[in-house]
Write a protein that binds this DNA or RNA. Structure first.
Lengths: 217, 217
DNA sequence: TTGACATTCAAACGATCGTTTGATACAAAC
DNA sequence: GTTTGTATCAAACGATCGTTTGAATGTCAA
């Protein structure tokens, strides 16, 4: 148990410990006994505080994941608010920074992305919740921000695909650290994250074709 | 059990059934009993043919995943061989087609991507194997093909990031079908896959900045 | 026909799973 | 001091897990 856990309630310790374990290894690979041992409490505590294991998993999303996602989203919008009338460059940059550097501690961000990936691969009840409360609003917000800068003839379908491509990058670079480190030879230190942000901005900006260049393909 | 399984050996049926179940729900969420029931054989068959459950999982990668990955890679290179002296457009197009349409049946491709994502999120012994035999060679091959067309001043680091961005898209659009369908409103039919390919080619091509346009950012 | 080998089978193994129980400790309210 | 409610605890529950066993098959060469 980490030192900063000692002064929190059993319930909070369970949520925190459960989140990291679920993120690292998935729902079924983690046992209630392992969670309660790591949280330094009795085995029955999970059922007492959350009813059952599944409900603990859902509460991890309700009480930790979604709260954190809102912090990321807020960081994104506040970053934009500072430079009013944001350009596409600034929008993508704000987005990449919110997700790659952002308001989260490094471990936090990793676990956050891992949990989301697991839900995307095999959605549970948690995904519906997250989709309604976080993903869809964020998606709409981002599309609305970028729409004015996209070529006029572009249809809604292609806007969506562009959003998804950006999102695929920020998510992938967060959650797939092992293959990314393997192929780049880099660890996720501050310098590398800065390079990641610059890359995403560059790649996404030109990919979106927001500048009026001749488009031959 | 699907009809085409009836004339195969118990061993082959186990590999096939285990792959889809592991892909759908992950290693720990699937029991040996469930696998053997679905494969229409006795419970002890897994331990008889593969030693234990973990070895069955590894053999799924050895005997099914890697074989299939080589088929995709071959499809990619053969597609390129037809148009010799491939342009960047043709390279990315061949890559996107190999991964999005490619030589695989639709279910196959989905399970293939799911298995890979699970390994990327939480690597096991299977990942080392796949990284050595498939991922690294493919990564090097792709980088070598595209290198001549990239801006000369680009360093190796940025080449790697560009490769990873392309890969992140093809993987993401394959494995994250639920959120993609949710946000686009599209199912993965032939028309949508064709649109996906075109999008990836467009996005990646301009993102790579392969054409000599003024680069302002 | 016999023996050797490969495969399948029902049954059981010990271990671990999520969950429940009833006792206990400790506080605040009356 | 008693009551009430919250929280934690050790212990046990039945169920399911991965694995093992030994007998029952089928196959084919000797």
């Amino acid at each position: 148990m980490s030192p900063d856990n000692e002064n929190k309630t059993t319930r909070d310790r369970l949520l925190k410990v459960a989140e990291t374990l679920f993120a690292q290894r998935g729902y079924h690979a983690v046992s209630v006994r392992e969670i309660t041992t790591a949280a330094n409490c009795n085995l029955a505590a999970v059922n007492y505080h959350f009813g059952n294991k599944k409900n603990l998993y859902l509460d991890v999303f309700r009480l930790r994941w979604m709260v954190r996602a809102r912090r990321v989203h807020d960081s994104f919008t506040q970053h934009l608010a500072k430079h009013d009338g944001a350009s596409p460059t600034e929008i993508i940059q704000a987005l990449a920074e919110a997700f790659i550097k952002g308001p989260l501690a490094d471990d936090e961000r990793f676990y956050h992305a891992q949990l989301m990936m697991r839900e995307m691969a095999k959605p549970t009840e948690a995904f519906e919740m997250v989709a309604d409360e976080i993903l869809r609003p964020f998606f709409r917000n981002l599309a609305k921000l970028l729409q004015p800068y996209l070529p006029e003839e572009i249809d809604e379908q292609r806007v969506n695909l562009n959003m998804l491509s950006i999102i695929s990058m920020v998510i992938y670079f967060n959650f797939a650290r092992v293959p990314v480190s393997l192929f780049t030879g880099c660890t996720y230190d501050e310098a590398f994250k800065e390079r990641l942000i610059q890359h995403i901005v560059n790649f996404a900006l030109t990919g979106l074709n927001v500048r009026e260049k001749e488009k031959s393909l």
